[in-house]
Amino acid sequence: MTNTLIFILAGAFSTATPLLLAAMGELVAEKSGVINLSIEGMMALGAAIAFMIAYQSGSHALGFLGGGLASVALSLIFSTLVLVLNANQVASGLAVGILGLGLSAFLARSFESLTIISLEKLDIPILTALPLIGPVAFHQDVVVYLGLGLAVALASFMSKTRGGLILRVVGEDPHIAHSLGFKVLRTRFLAISFGAAMAGLAGAYASTVLTPLWSDGMIIGRGWIALALVVFGTWRVFRILLGAYMFGLALLADLAVQSLGIRIPSQLLTSAPYVMTIIVLTVVSKDALRIKLNAPISLGENYKPSK
């Protein structure tokens, strides 16, 4: 029983990592005022390209690089649509998402069901030997730690740097941002590209570390969970981090429930993250002032440079 508990608490770090990476990317895009509904497709493309490269080269690092770049390349289409052509963000996101899912299946079709070796879990002297906390938190692969580090870096970027300030102003009111001399479209372009890169890395983690194999459709909704996570975390990095771990646990909860012999429909557990997201959104949105502090006001609205 203890073994199962430790396994699930530790495993949640891995299942949380792709959610966290993708959600941090989406957070930045949304903070700039752009909602990108193509994460699922970008993750799928990142996963496919990363797996193909890692399989051929034997290098996970190259795989991650390729997965991230592939997603960024795909996001150029999205950026062109919403920033240059002023197309609707919702429709553009869905269209690019479908293209990404299609491309992943198409490009990696001869890699179906092939497998590679996952990344090794790192042991940290002294810490890993600690009871309970050691095997749970200090026996993870390097990307888990990088993800945590990135969360810290992103949080301080958002709150402490000029870049973070520009990002937030652009998302709050692009017209004011423009009149302050900030480059709205350039900021949004960078934010979208960052978001895509993170989605690609999230996909790469899914196909080369979490489940080191390629199988068409393997992202199965994790991109939508990442989107939920941004809202669940009310557009705050550390809440998203916490939420990612909770959602990661939820994905594994079924195993704990089964090993305890409790009969709960697995569908109820699978729905839990989505239900929790709706509840959190409802609670925070009710207080208009509270959500204003975090949620980008201009989310989903294009900015047309006038005159």
Partner: peptide, 19 residues
């Protein structure tokens, strides 16, 4: 409650599939 219908309807899609 002023909750964004984009997010709520997206979440309800996933929940409906489980239902």
């Amino acid at each position: 409650f002023n909750a964004s219908e984009i997010i709520v309807t997206l979440m309800l899609n996933q929940i409906a599939a489980q239902v």
